[in-house]
Amino acid sequence: MMLVEPDKDVRLALTTLLENQGWQVAALDNGEALEKILKEATPLAVVCEASLPDKSASNVLEACRRRQVPIVFLGHQTEVQSAVDLVRMGAEDFLEKPFPQARLLKLLDRIAQKHVG
């Protein structure tokens, strides 16, 4: 599982949450690093903040789609149009921050099941 979140505190909190659920998490703080990793590896899924300083969400989505890696975006209430566009273009989901932790975990379980099964 790859996590891309520029905010250090949120990144740490999400990493802990996911690791406590038994996921192996590689946490990054920028989109460029994710794109590099996607050239070499195929993670089960990517959880990514929609507003990254270095990469547009649609670029990140495209990089994931090329590798057929499911991606879930996290973002803010003001980004409705961006959420709509990303899901239309193939993102698994777009969760509005703050979201119930259970929602993200359930979503990732579903993605993992789909991926494995």
């Binding site: 409705v80 149009q81 959420a83 777009f94 969760l95 509005e96």
Partner: peptide
């Protein structure tokens, strides 16, 4: 009312687009 969960659900269900 821009509501992300609602908008995303609509798109996932097959709506063409969503305009606020």
């Amino acid at each position: 009312h821009g509501d992300i969960p609602l908008a995303v659900a609509a798109i996932q269900r097959g709506a063409f687009d969503f305009l606020t």
